[in-house]
């Protein structure tokens, strides 16, 4: 394939030093419902720099979540490779934290217990865990909720806990799978601001899957637009709004409407997968 020819081993290694995440030719197909195979992802190349906030948008069903799961190492790709810090991804690992739309909290553990669990897997000593967990919960704005069970929390609070738990892993890469997709509009706006603040404080590399163009424009350094199945990179957009930014500034920026229209036009053209 062209991508392989363009990156001989040496230069690949050198450039991988700069890229936090490097996807080259990632492809995935499924067994079809009746027969044959359906190609979901048709060869994706993408580099994400350290500390960068990159969003993936695309028509629904285009496989953007699948791509994220491949990077997370939860499912294997059929072709291509994923490098994280220059090392080939072969399974889930604490170097890539993930936040799911469904929160995926352990319902039988309290808020504090959920965060502590992640700290314990990381090898934090038993006596340091409560202190660190409290600090993380305070970072996501949940100082008071430590003793509650997830079933006692609102959706927004659950997602805050999930973010705190992922931050507890102290991974440099944060994979986020439509994390605010299940929340109401106000909570969602609030959490977007919080996420930007946390990202600013921690300097994580974020790969963010969303179906909301507004969200992508507000949060990202770069927006990758995927095509419908089999998905490929259709367009890469660098909004370039100044940081730190507020929602009002972004909405008032002269280029916002044009960028919004451009992404929407592309999504409309792709249609539903």
């Amino acid at each position: 394939m062209a991508a392989e020819a363009a990156h001989p081993v040496d230069s690949a290694r050198r450039e991988a030093d700069e890229a936090k995440l490097r996807l080259s030719g990632v492809a995935k197909s499924y067994a079809g419902r009746r027969r044959g195979t359906v190609q979901a992802i048709g060869g994706i190349d993408l580099d994400v720099r350290p500390g960068e906030f990159v969003s993936l948008v695309g028509p629904s069903g285009c496989g953007k979540s699948t791509l994220l799961y491949i990077i997370g190492g939860f499912i294997g790709a059929d072709g291509g490779s994923v490098l994280c810090d220059g090392r080939e991804v072969s399974g889930p690992g604490p170097d890539r934290g993930i936040v799911f739309q469904e929160f995926a909290l352990f319902p039988w553990k309290t808020v504090l217990g959920n965060v502590t669990w992640a700290l314990a897997r990381r090898g934090v000593s038993r006596k340091d865990r409560p202190e660190q967990a409290r600090r993380l919960l305070s970072l996501v704005g949940l100082d008071e909720a430590g003793r509650l069970y997830p079933s006692e929390l609102s959706g927004g609070m659950k997602q805050r806990v999930a973010i705190a738990r992922t931050l507890a892993m102290d991974s440099e890469v944060l994979l986020m799978d439509e994390p605010f997709g299940a929340l109401d509009a106000q909570t969602r706006a609030l959490l977007q601001e919080e996420l930007l603040r946390i990202w600013d404080e921690t300097g994580k590399t974020v790969l963010f899957v969303t179906h909301s163009v507004e969200e992508a424009l507000y949060l990202s350094d770069r927006i990758v637009v995927l095509s419908s199945r089999p998905s490929r990179v259709r367009d890469v957009i660098t909004p370039g709004f100044p940081r730190p930014r507020t929602r009002e500034q972004v909405l008032a920026d002269s280029s916002y409407a044009a960028l919004y229209e451009r992404i929407w036009a592309e999504l409309r053209e792709e249609g539903p997968a």
Binding site: F100, A104, F106, W117, M169
Partner: peptide
């Protein structure tokens, strides 16, 4: 048991037996 739950545990570095006894078992309780 929701796939996301075991995935979360795996990404936190939980071993196979930790996933079985500390995630799947309580979830299946």
């Amino acid at each position: 048991v929701p796939e996301r739950l075991t995935w979360s545990a795996e990404s936190m570095g939980a071993s196979r037996s930790a996933v079985a006894f500390r995630v799947v078992l309580p979830s299946a309780l």
